[in-house]
Design a protein around this nucleic acid. Structure first.
Lengths: 190, 190
DNA sequence: CAGCACTTGTACCTATCGGTACAGTCTGTA
DNA sequence: TACAGACTGTACCGATAGGTACAAGTGCTG
């Protein structure tokens, strides 16, 4: 049997796109085989526990990306306003200006939530926590945490709306407004 | 065969809860039969086109509810601020303070979007449109439409977050902030 | 009470699901 | 070059999916 070029690490991003476009249930092994070019043999060699393990690997990779590209910088030592700007920039790029879905968000709404509840919760708590810290540094005081919740929810909702309306621009518009809402603490009502 | 008590109209709300708790794919006919008490014979008698028709009936009913309880009042003749308050009240009640999912939002993120794209888009455009109108009446001017988008997205995102964190209170907190953000046009930056 | 349209449970269909078994094949190491 | 272990395609498994067919039953109308 000819050996496939891919390693396990190379497969995970492909799996991510498959889960994004087909959902967890919709991503049958046939579909996964087709998109990855790997047969069941290879897939179960890389992911012995099957689809669950594939999804876990995908979520772990996405989470790791957000940790390094978003959460860690949010807690960094740069000026707080720059950290916030950076978060919005990274988020806008990652979600392809609204053309790409957040797997954690999708899993939260679907019944996959039960299966991956810990990972889903961790992803969002980390986001809210790190963002709240940066907001506190810009002087939002007691409003930092609720404002962080509002912003994270706003981003997730913007993804829902952009996809529902099939209008990626609405994602960008909403993100622009969210940027401004964290910019000036004096407009953050108590 | 004993005749079941239910009529088609009585089944739709049950179907809605089944789709909410199991998703569209996850709601197998076995599950539907179990929750509705109706066998395949009855189900296909009421919904000849099967699951697709069931989902359409559910979406239509939810949409109709929002039309009468939310969108129509938003366009009404009451004072604009009262109309906005009413929207938030109805939304908070309908979504059980974050314990209940928005089927349209869930369908938008899942691949059910493709199948029900028209209904999903209509639901959100109606919401944004009617809300933008009310916001214009409270003096938000050119910011009415983008603000309406932000609010609708905020509500949807709040549902995602509440479910992800398994914390319905976060939904209520975010809604409270959104209420305030539409209250005072002077804080709506241009 | 006869007839009829509407309901309903059951049996059955094919397709596909996730997963397993395993015999082959390749490649790094000695 | 020989062996070990990682890799891969294929055949196969039981379970279940959505959907169809239909006979049996029900209650309204005349």
């Amino acid at each position: 049997m000819p050996r496939a070029v891919a390693e396990r690490g190379d497969v995970v991003p492909v799996l991510a796109e498959v889960f994004r476009s087909h959902g967890f249930d919709g991503a049958s092994l046939a579909v996964i085989t087709e998109h990855t070019g790997l047969g069941k043999g290879s897939l179960y060699n890389f992911f012995p526990r099957g689809k669950d393990e594939m999804a876990e690997a995908v979520l772990d990779e996405v989470d790791a990306w957000f940790q390094t590209a978003v959460y860690l910088p949010l807690r960094g030592s740069e000026p707080a306003t720059a950290r916030l700007e950076r978060m919005f920039d990274e988020v806008e790029t990652y979600f392809r200006s609204g053309r790409r879905i957040c797997l954690f968000g999708a899993f939260a709404l679907g019944l996959e939530r039960d299966r991956f509840a810990d990972r889903v919760r961790a992803y969002f708590t980390d986001w809210v926590d790190s963002l709240a810290g940066a907001l506190a540094d810009t002087g939002h005081g007691r409003q930092s945490r609720p404002l962080a919740e509002e912003v994270v929810a706003g981003i997730q909702g913007a993804l829902v709306l952009a996809r529902a309306l099939d209008d990626p621009d609405s994602f960008t518009r909403i993100l622009t407004r969210l940027r401004r809402s964290v910019g000036d603490p004096t407009t953050s009502r108590a």
